[in-house]
Structures are given as structure tokens and as C-alpha cells.
Simulated scan of single mutants.
Amino acid sequence: MRKLFLLFALLASSISFSQELNCTVNVIAQQTGNENDIIFKTLEKQLTEFVNNTKWTNNSFEAHERINCGMVINVRENNNDAFSASIQVSSSRPIFNSTYSSPIYNYNDKDFNFQYLEFQNLVFNESQFESNLVSVLAFHVYMILGMDADSFELNGGSDYFKQAQTIANYSQQLSGQGWKLEDGLQSRFALIDNIMSPSYKSIRTAVYMYHREGLDIMNDNQKDGKTKIISVFDELKKVHSVRPNSFLMRVFFDAKADEILDILNGGPKVNVADAKDILNKIAPMYSQKWRNIKY
């Protein structure tokens, strides 16, 4: 009986503390001229453990359900405990009944300045500022969680986006870039402000339609899946008509442009001429790619 109890306790513990992310963190420090300094390896190891071992939600994730993602931190300068860097964050989402993973979040955060002492304790507080290092990583973790959840359920990522907004709000107290309105149209503030705005709700609808109603059915019916993905561009037109050339649209296509090109050029033939025209209007930054769409 005691052994049975211990087995149950271990199983319960493994469920209760299962984490959400399978994240690769790389710290690149070539621009500092001192890339072999041990502090960069220590930072990389600590951040990897922080992102992957922190319990970010109240949900239970099996090992195979963890979200695959990556963070590449490019350190430009460091002076004692002060670091100036950028961080490229990406994540992908498995497609039903296939071995393919679809890119879903791809964001280059250029304003990542932080303080770090080797082996310092990294703790996330959902309602209180701890450090800019923790805030930036936690913000992007919740963006990853929100985008992933939106792709499985319509507006399923709302709670995660609310937490990202909370982090942005309480991080405005410091002088670091990226958290305030005046920090520009491509800042973390702008990103979460757009996501939470009703003006951009069609982008979140498009994320769901694209993945759940498009990609997830392509293994069973490629033509229907491809047709649904093309219909997503009409949904995105609604945003473009209100907010042309918006940053959030750019974030969507930064993740999806290559994949869209492959989908439109591959598989069963459907009418893609109209889709090409729409893409050139709503995502002109990728017009060179759209020129390669064949029909």
C-alpha cells in the first residue's frame, strides 16, 4: 500500500509540475569581442533553465505537448553587469496527423537591455516587476503561449495575452526601451497593444482559421485545406482596410510568408490569382516572394 501511495504521489507530482515549453536558448556574443567569456555560457544555461523549468500556466502539458520554440540573444555590448542586446524569438506548432511543424511566432526584439550578475536568481512574478531580463523573456513566453492557443481555439490565447500585457504595464516603471507608447510602432508595447485591440481581431481569427481549419485538414483533404488558407487572406483584408501596413500584419507574415508560398505553389490546383493580388496589397513587404506564386 505504501509503495502504491508513493507511486501515486510521484505521478501526481509529474503532472502538477509538467512545464509548457521546449525552448532552445542561444546567447551569441561575437560583437562584444569577448565571446569566450564564461559569463555568456552561464547566462545561456540559466536562461534555458528559467524558460523551460518555470511553470507558466495552470495547465498540464505532456512531454510531447510542449511547445517547441527558440530564443537567440545577440549581445552587442556588455560592461560589468550591463548588457545591450537583441532577442529573436520563434515558435512552431505541430500539424494534425503529420510530422510537419508550422512556424507561428517570429519576432525580432531589438531593444533588449538588461542587467545580469553571474548566477543571480531568476524568478518570475506575474504581478510584480523583478528585472528587465525576466520581464522580456516572460513577455515573449506568454506571446508564444497565446499564439499557440489561438491556433487551436478561436481566441484561445486571451488569458496569455492578458498576462503579457500585465508584464508590459508593470515593466514601464524602468527606463528600458520597448515597454512604452513612445518606443515606436514595432515595440513590445505596440505588439501587445495591437493584439488586445478589437481593430485587429480578424488577425486572431485568421490565425485560428489558417491552422485549425486549413493546415490541420490538409493531410486528409489537401484541396479543402488549401482553399481554406486562401480564404484567410480575405479575413486579413478586414484589418488592412482599417489599419493598412500594420505591425501586427508584419508579425503574422514574418512567420508565414515562406510557408504560404510553398502551400500556394504545391498540392492540388486551385485559383490562386486572386490570392496573389490580395497578398500584394496586404503584405507588400513580401512582394518579391509573391512574384514567385505560380498559377
Results as ranks from 00 to 15, higher is better:
L185R: 12
I87C: 05
M143R: 01
V207L: 11
N194Y: 09
I195S: 03
P268F: 06
Q115Y: 09
Y160V: 05
Q177G: 13
Q163S: 07
D234T: 15
S175N: 14
N108G: 11
I15F: 10
V27K: 08
I73M: 01
E62L: 15
E118G: 09
A85P: 01
F129R: 12
N271D: 15
F119L: 14
V75K: 02
V134D: 03
A149S: 12
T205D: 14
V123K: 08
S91Q: 08
I217R: 09
I192Y: 03
Q172G: 14
A273D: 12
V207N: 06
Q172W: 03
A257K: 09
P284D: 11
S199H: 07
R291W: 01
S92H: 04
F129W: 11
E182I: 07
F96I: 05
A149Y: 01
Q46I: 00
A149T: 00
L137C: 04
D220N: 14
V242I: 14
S60E: 13
F61V: 05
A9P: 00
D262N: 13
A138T: 07
D109F: 10
Q173E: 15
Q120Y: 09
F119V: 02
Y295A: 11
T42G: 14
D148W: 01
F50G: 03
I260W: 06
F152T: 06
E130D: 05
F252P: 00
